[in-house]
């Protein structure tokens, strides 16, 4: 089972993402953007890691979305292979139109706005650990394949543009109806509160991650590879050996690939 971790100029999370992939028993390698894109077809799944591809020029993700490797990824997505876009990877999937429906740019990840009591209390870049509620059905999505609906994970975010918006209300309605909303920002008890700090970036419906209608492509703003080992977790968690909640995203990917093969 081979996973390509796609590296664009400006990507900066490829190494820890590859560690997570390998730790879950998958083979993997970092795939530089200017390698021949045909070589991508040999892989069983893909992760587009976080960072600042092309330094977020014009807007986050858009320049990378025009690279030839993304055209190949679009075909592989249509073939049902799993793709997980994390943070900048999510932004690239949205700008390339692979998410949410595969038919064009239907969403934007706009600048964060933190709103409390009707007032904007902060804007822009924010790095913090957040609580996520898994809102999709079990086995709905490649990257949360073995998570039950309603399970809560603690995973950090670090981005300036993660505020998911659409000019078309129907897009959000369709995401909800088709069970494409995979992760939402929630309180420690799992409540969806639309205000900061629970809604950490102002995102519509507290959306932190979505999948495509087929469920094989997942885009999420939080970084599961940074919550992969127990020692990476904040002070409140006991400093134990073993794994953290982010592992389940990569473990899910592996299980998804295994079951698809049967």
């Amino acid at each position: 089972m081979r996973i390509a971790v796609i590296q664009f100029p400006g990507t900066n999370c490829e190494h820890e993402t590859l560690v997570a992939v390998k730790e879950c028993g998958m083979d993997g390698e970092i795939f530089r953007w200017n390698r021949p894109e045909q070589e991508l077809c040999e892989f069983d799944g893909y992760v587009i890691p976080g960072g600042f591809s092309y330094q977020d020029r014009v807007r986050a993700g858009v320049i990378a979305s025009k690279e030839p490797v993304m055209a190949t990824l679009r075909e592989e997505a249509a073939n049902g292979k799993p793709i997980i876009g994390i943070c900048n990877g999510f932004q690239i999937l949205v700008e390339s139109g692979i998410l949410p429906f595969g038919d064009g740019v239907r969403l934007a990840l706009a600048q964060n706005v933190m709103i409390r009591g009707g007032e904007i209390v902060r804007r822009g870049y924010y790095c913090a650990w957040t609580m996520l509620r898994h809102d999709a059905e079990e086995r709905r999505c490649s990257g949360s394949y073995i998570l039950r609906r309603g399970e809560i994970l603690s995973i950090p975010i670090a981005h300036a543009e993660g505020n998911l918006v659409s000019s078309d209300k129907k897009v959000i309605e369709r995401l909800i109806e088709d069970d494409q909303i995979v992760f939402r920002y929630c309180s420690e008890r799992g409540d969806i509160i639309s205000e900061f700090p629970v809604n950490v970036n102002g995102s519509t419906e507290n959306i932190a991650g979505i999948c495509n209608p087929e469920g094989n492509v997942l885009g999420m703003m939080p970084h599961p590879e940074r919550a992969f080992f127990a020692w990476q977790l904040p002070w409140k968690h006991p400093r134990v050996r073993g794994y953290g909640p982010g592992r389940i995203v990569f473990e899910s990917m592996r299980r998804y690939i295994e079951e698809r093969r049967l």
């Binding site: 014009v58 807007r59 858009v62 025009k66 700008e95 740019v105 239907r106 969403l107 934007a108 706009a110 918006v165 659409s166 000019s167 078309d168």
Partner: peptide
């Protein structure tokens, strides 16, 4: 195609 994302721009 490039400069605008109509969902915000």
């Amino acid at each position: 195609e490039l400069l605008v994302n109509p969902n915000k721009d």
